[in-house]
Design a binder for these strands. Structure first.
Length: 890
RNA sequence: GCCCAGGUGGUGGAACUGGUAGACACGCAGGUCUCAGAAGCCUGUGCUUAAUAAGCAUGGGGGUUCGAGUCCCCCCCUGGGCACCA
């Protein structure tokens, strides 16, 4: 079973047990749904060409410890891994080499798989997923299809980075200082037709759902800020003649309406042409042009000076009938609210700045305090100058004034209360090859109507269409049975040159006869097939972004091989759904209960039990995945609204120099090299010993010596020089009470620390224990075995080896986790600290229930305390039994 | 500018609800074993002073308290997020 090494020969031991686990499928998740479950999830990696870096094993070791701990505690554990394998680097590699990105991706996955296996992680490899596998992305396409059918996907013109020299669209990260990363060519913003997902429809729920999640507060706050809910009112301003109609604005400060002295609309606002009077036309046109070429960054970050141009028109302030000029300025963004604002320079610094620049009047409607020296006054205070014949806000605080004016506006039909979100819809297409193709074809109006009449494939209520060169095309979704829609083979991975993906060059795939009943296709170059369900169509050439596959992979793991559904109902309910709270059989009850995920009904709330990954995904990935999950919940295909109940971010590991690891700095730690020199167990242990999991911490190659010595020490305490179990370990031996106490203390501490993800202190406790064992002349076999079990989640190879060497049957993982005896932790004597005036002046072992008078008497007799009391009177005594006795003297 | 997290020995880091600051490691010094070395083991190691005695020490400055790394106020630094969001 075990190896026969005489020394701690990790190079033999580690592969030996990795083979054992693989052959015995030790970590295969059980089908037994009567067992309590634990779903321990890592953020799956993008298999890059450079292989695993040291940050991967950090988070992965943490979850591996939890997973192994949960196995030992009798849970059915789901601990899977997979590959987020679509994406830009593979495509760039393909462009460079001409080889299919699939080949490169597969080679990288192979390396990653080998490296992860060498780290001894307890993954259930039978559930491996790969986002580029047609059996997987079939369901990514399926979810998109559902989103489309429910009106949550549409097309829109959106600006992207375009490089005229390279004739391609660039991602943000490919643009450096306004030039292409490759070649350094100038880039520009260009509008392209894009797919967009209506995530904003879920804004309110995405915000509300955060409340019940066990996530880091900072992450919740980031999501809140990203969604950016603000409460206010939408108000309609009539335009002054001769301009017709009205201008709608959103404001969070309707109480300041009386202070509105001008208005601003965004340069892109559709009303701009109508508002512009002839004498201003040239100036407005010029201004619009400059604004259009500016990126968002230039419009915000760099432009501290306010710019703008007068339209020539006026609007009527609905509260006081004042004629206010309408300006056009780029400090108002078209994408937020209505793209138009009422400007109240007295209570808004941006408006103040603008008003100053263009010499516009300023009226205060909130009285600042007498000592106020600033410009715009944004704090609370009594309203002033705010009354008309029907309503007066004067004297009211901001909140009360908001209420009164909102009531009035609603009563008069001039506006209403309104909630606005900062969150924008999600740009969901890329002009790339290496991504999921959209299950969409574009057809003419007549064909679209015919297909619509054919009710087999539901289409959205409102058609998705766009017009190009005078022709309107309609988006028709493929039937489910036609999925997966595969990527066609291409001869070149270079983009089309026209702003479309390389798919636009594959004419036989692109231009087709399409059967809307079955989704079947024939190249348009061939004769039209017989049957009246065949129509002329053009496929969608965009592909989905990398986010798509990672939005739902945690669901695929539950039922990775299901060919009929993206996840089976039963598996889904068991692993993600609500179920009665697990009654914990172990003595860890108290600590477990404390962290137990329960809601008011005493039921386990749903979702992944632990999800660990970097902060870099705090907003986008986690928000997008929540959005899809909520949508699937609404479809009725998943029973719970939130995917990840508990989330944790591991901190990043810095280079030795305290700087971010990077190849150019040459401070990258290579896991393979460390494993070769010290072994996986030492690497795992060291990664966890480095500091708190969430902290950012520097890598110190010398520090690994410490944990490596610790592992050697464990070996030497278990195995004698002859390679046989160490003679000091015996079945007959009874441990000294202190050692026994320490064992129980260690069981308690390690268990609690694993649950709290405090692995560094768990390891230090195990070191303390082993140091004690080393000093003890004998140790009972039972004690040693219990300790090995505690060590097993951290250093599984060594633990398995010693467990087997001591005559136990592998795997140690399935031996029930040790239980501590609270009675063993009770002590009779405690150290009482004596203080005089709060300063340490000595200590003494005292019996546990010592009363105050006796404690004081002991202190007075203590030789170190006495000098500090000499000639003084004790004014006050503070006694905390078992802790301190503080004598306050004159 | 706004929001958040953090600042503890030569180093990584411990410290429960305010109760001996520096656990556990790294490093360093001395010792032991050895022909010698490596490994192991033992001892010491925050700073100041001859001190087992005292004083000073948790980014800086104030405060609350018998007692503050921990709580409150101001400031400095580092990291992360957001950035004209009306």
């Amino acid at each position: 079973m075990a190896t026969e090494c005489k020394d701690y020969d990790f190079q033999k031991i580690e592969p030996h047990w990795q083979t054992f686990w693989e052959e015995n499928k030790t970590f295969r998740t059980m089908d037994d749904t009567s067992r309590p479950k634990s779903y321990v999830l890592d953020m799956f990696p993008y298999p890059s060409g450079s292989g695993l870096h040291i940050g991967h094993p950090e988070g992965y070791t943490a979850t591996d410890i939890v997973a192994r701990y949960q196995w030992a505690r009798g849970f059915n554990v789901l601990h899977p891994i997979g590959w987020d394998a679509f994406g830009l680097p593979a495509e760039q590699h393909a462009v460079k080499t001409g080889a299919h990105p699939r080949a490169n991706t597969e080679a990288n996955i192979k390396t990653f798989r080998r490296q992860l296996k060498a780290l001894g992680f307890s993954y259930d490899w039978d559930r491996e997923v790969n986002t580029t596998d047609p059996g997987y992305f079939q369901w990514t396409q399926w979810i998109f299809l559902k989103l489309f059918q429910h009106g949550l996907a549409y097309v829109d013109e959106r600006p992207v980075w375009w490089c005229p020299e390279l004739k391609t669209v660039l991602a943000n990260e490919e643009v450096v200082d306004g030039r292409s990363e490759v070649g350094g060519h100038p880039v520009e913003r260009r509008n392209l037709r894009q797919w967009v997902l209506r995530i904003t429809a879920y804004a309110e729920r995405l915000l509300a759902g955060l409340k019940d999640l066990d996530w880091p507060d900072s992450t919740k706050r980031m999501q809140e800020a990203w969604i950016g809910r603000s409460d206010g009112a939408e108000v309609r301003f009539k335009l002054a003649a001769p301009a017709p109609g009205e201008l709608r604005i959103f404001t969070t400060r309707p109480d300041t309406l009386f202070g509105c002295t001008y208005m601003v609309v965004a340069p892109e606002h559709p009303l701009v042409p109508a508002l512009t009077v002839p004498v201003q036309r040239a100036a407005v046109e010029a201004y619009r042009k400059t604004a259009a070429t500016k990126s968002d960054l230039e419009r915000t970050d760099l432009a501290k000076e306010k710019t703008g141009v007068f339209s020539g028109s006026h609007a009527i302030n609905p509260v006081n009938g004042a004629r206010v000029p309408i300006w056009i300025a780029d400090y108002v963004l078209m994408g937020y609210g209505t793209g138009a604002i009422m400007a109240v320079p007295g209570e808004d610094q941006r408006d103040w700045d603008f008003a100053r620049t263009f010499k516009l009047p300023i009226v205060r409607t909130v009285q600042p305090p007498a000592d106020f020296t600033g410009e715009a006054y944004v704090e609370d205070g009594p309203a002033v100058n705010s009354a008309n014949e029907e309503v007066s806000l004067n004297g009211l605080g901001v909140d009360a004034a908001k209420e009164r004016i909102s009531d009035w506006l609603e009563r008069k039909g001039l506006g209403q209360r309104k909630v606005n979100f900062r969150l924008r819809d999600w740009l969901f297409s890329r002009q790339r090859y290496w991504g999921e193709p959209f299950p969409i074809v574009w057809v003419g109006e007549t064909d679209y109507r015919r297909a619509l009449a054919h009710r087999e494939v539901p289409q959205p209520k409102d058609p998705v269409a766009y017009t190009q060169d005078g022709r309107t095309l309609y988006a028709l979704v493929l039937p489910e049975s036609a999925l997966p829609l595969l990527l066609p083979e291409v001869t070149s991975y270079l983009p089309s040159g026209m702003g479309e993906s390389p798919l636009a060059n594959v004419t036989a795939w692109l231009e087709i006869w399409y059967d809307f009943a079955t989704g079947a296709a024939m190249p348009a170059s061939s004769p039209r097939p017989a049957g009246d369900t065949w129509i002329r169509a053009r496929r969608e050439t965009n592909t989905m972004p990398q986010w798509a596959g990672s939005c739902w992979y945690y669901l695929r793991y539950l039922d990775a091989k299901n060919a009929r559904s993206f996840v089976g109902r039963e598996a889904e309910t068991y692993w993600m759904g609500s179920r009665p709270a697990v009654r914990d059989q172990s003595a860890l009850t108290s600590s477990t209960e404390k962290n137990a995920p329960t809601d008011v009904g005493g039921y386990r709330t749903q979702g992944v039990d632990l999800y660990v990954g970097g902060t870099e995904h705090a907003v986008l990935h986690l928000l997008y995945a929540r959005f899809w999950h909520m949508f699937l919940h609404d479809l009725g295909v998943v029973p719970q609204p939130e995917p990840f109940r508990k989330l944790f971010h591991q901190g990043i590991i810095l280079g030795e120099d305290g700087e971010k690891m990077s190849k150019s700095r040459g401070n990258v730690a290579n896991p393979d090299a460390v494993i070769h020199e010290y072994g996986t167990d030492a690497l795992r242990l060291y990664l966890m010993f480095l500091g708190p999991l969430e902290a950012m911490k520097p890598w110190n190659p010398r520090g690994i010596e410490g944990v490596f010595r610790f592992l050697n020490k464990v070996w030497r305490e278990c195995i004698g020089e002859d390679g046989r179990p160490h003679p000091k370990i015996s079945t007959a031996a009874t441990d000294a009470p202190e050692l026994e106490r320490l064992l129980h203390e260690t069981i308690r501490k390690v268990g609690e620390d694993i649950e709290g993800l405090r692995f560094n202190t768990a390891i230090s406790q195990m070191m303390i224990f082993v140091n004690a064992v080393q000093k003890a002349p004998t140790v009972s076999r039972r004690t040693m075995l219990a300790f090995l079990q505690l060590l097993a989640p951290f250093a599984p190879h060594l633990a398995e080896e010693l467990w087997a060497r001591l005559g136990e049957k592998p795997s140690i993982l399935h031996a029930p986790w040790p239980v501590y005896d609270a009675a063993k932790l009770v002590v009779e004597q405690v150290k009482l600290v004596f203080q005089v005036n709060g300063r340490f002046r000595g200590d003494q072992l005292v019996p546990i229930g010592l009363v105050e008078t006796e404690a004081v008497a002991l202190a007075r007799k203590n030789p170190r305390v006495m000098p500090h009391l000499a000639g003084k009177t004790v004014k006050k005594v503070v006694y905390v039994p078992g802790r301190i006795l503080n004598l306050v003297v004159e």
